Amino acid sequence: MKKTITALSVLAAVLLVSAAPAQAAAPVADPVRALKAKLVPGHGVHFTEVANWSDGVDTLQTDTGEGVLQFSKKGVAGYDLKGATWDDQKFRVVSVGDTAYYSGAIYELPKGKTWYATGGGSLPTIYGQILNPAELTTLSALLKKGTKAGNKVTGKITFADLAKVSPWFARSILTEWADETEISYTLTLSSAGLVTKLSSSYRAKDVTESFSEFEGGIISVDTRYSGWGGKVSVKAPAPRTVTHTLPE
């Protein structure tokens, strides 16, 4: 009898546990409000990313990178990116204000110079993350166009629509490609409403002549963000190391 009572007690306990309502996932704070609170000059966010190129059959890891975005009160004031190409050639891009400085594998530089200066404030390379969630207008557009499920937002945005809201994209060479190109994306948010991961992909269409080898290819980038609001410092290289022209 005691064994029977004990067995029934255990069974009842199991049924009670099974019947207990599942706890709801913690609500995610408003991402735009959360970002606004972090946009303090001299502060920023760290990121790491991996880019791939695919023809739809084969996939090649093209670039990897890590760096920081430095904030202004409205968004991004500068960035410092250290990257490597598929064949392990190193490069670095530093952007301060309207000038970007490139060093390493991307350009062949004149003797005695280690940096090439050109227009800045935009996507640093073709294989960089095309979407910038540190821009208030860009984040707002991605949230509006996306569908939220738990802590993820999934959606699509065209090049034309992105150019209207994102200086990061609007200042890049990609604006000369097809306006109707669609970028698929997934944002992953922390409970505080901050972006922890961003995955994007698009198929290159009607590219400019100098990028003809990209036509039809799929470029996808996974970026992870950490340390939102921490202190960062992005500084331009010493002027004596910089050239504004490249060898012909």
Rank of each mutant, 00 (worst) to 15 (best):
A170D: 13
A7Y: 09
E182N: 09
F214Y: 15
G217C: 00
G128A: 14
K3H: 12
K111T: 10
I106A: 07
K164V: 02
S9C: 13
E180A: 15
A100H: 07
K113Q: 11
G44H: 05
S212I: 13
L139S: 03
I219F: 13
V45Y: 01
V221T: 14
G78D: 06
E182K: 15
V232R: 04
P124V: 05
Y116P: 05
T48H: 10
E66F: 11
D63C: 00
T64F: 05
Q23H: 11
V232G: 00
F47N: 01
A117H: 03
F214W: 15
G112K: 05
A77N: 08
A19M: 09
V45H: 05
D63I: 00
N132M: 12
F91D: 04
W53Y: 08
T223S: 13
F211A: 13
G42K: 06
V10L: 15
L142F: 03
G42E: 04
V93C: 04
I5P: 05
L194T: 00
F159P: 01
R33Y: 02
V68S: 06
A26D: 04
A84Y: 07
E49W: 02
S212N: 13
V153G: 00
A37R: 13
L142C: 03
P41E: 10
S54A: 09
D63T: 03
A29E: 07
L60A: 10
Q61W: 06
Y127L: 12
A26G: 06
V153A: 01
S122M: 11
V40Q: 14
W177D: 14
T241R: 06
D58K: 13
T243A: 02
T188W: 07
S226V: 05
V40G: 09
L142E: 03
A19S: 14
K113R: 11
A236W: 06
I130T: 12
D222E: 15
L16T: 12
V68H: 00
P247Y: 11
V234N: 08
L189C: 06
R171G: 15
G193C: 04
T4W: 08
A163I: 01
A204H: 12
T188E: 08
L194C: 01
I126F: 05
V96P: 04
L35T: 07
D63V: 01
S103G: 10
A204V: 14
P31A: 01
V17S: 12
G146K: 00
V57F: 10
Q70H: 01
E49C: 00
G56K: 09
P239Q: 05
D80L: 12
S226K: 14
